[in-house]
Design a protein around this nucleic acid. Structure first.
Length: 142
DNA sequence: GCCAACGTTGGC
DNA sequence: GCCAACGTTGGC
């Protein structure tokens, strides 16, 4: 079991839309970065992730789950790009802002801080627990 | 809307 | 294979 973080601009695809997509989930399309794609290739069914709003909001608002392994991204003909499917699991009761993450010494090494522009990131287990705690989710989903 | 960071492209 | 130019991301 591994943990991840998915970034999305709410204008393009918001947490509300992700929830509306229901248990079937949706393809996480549009990633055009090799590192982010490789992270998706490494994902297993049932892996959990944070849903982060970039540009607006700048906070972790939800928990998602991987429900399909990496496959071709249907939004492009280019065979290089792949994506997983994810579905909304639950809200984070108290969204955790980027400011909160930066202010926490325990989260200083989170990719959200150190690899600001990476759109699909790995999350370490201790970071997962800490962000869940800050967000009001105890115990942390796993 | 600006601009810094950084990934990608393409000429050599 | 290097590196300058360029495009995109994303915080502010």
């Amino acid at each position: 079991m591994a943990f991840w973080l998915f970034k999305s601009e709410p204008d393009a695809w918001s947490w509300e839309k992700q929830k509306a997509a229901g248990a079937k989930g949706t393809e996480w399309t549009g990633v055009r970065n090799y590192q982010a794609r490789n992270n998706m290739r490494a994902m297993q069914i049932g892996d959990k992730g944070f849903f982060y709003h970039s540009n607006e909001g700048l906070d972790i608002v939800g928990i998602v789950e991987v429900c399909a392994l990496a496959h071709h991204d249907s939004s492009t003909d280019d065979p290089r790009w792949e994506c997983v499917d994810i579905r909304a699991v639950k809200d984070v009761p108290n969204p955790v802002s980027l400011k909160d993450v930066k202010a926490s010494p325990k989260l200083a090494k989170m990719a959200l801080v150190t690899s600001m522009r990476l759109s699909v990131q790995p999350v370490m287990p201790d970071e997962w627990v800490e962000v869940c705690r800050m967000g009001g989710l105890t115990p942390a989903p796993e």
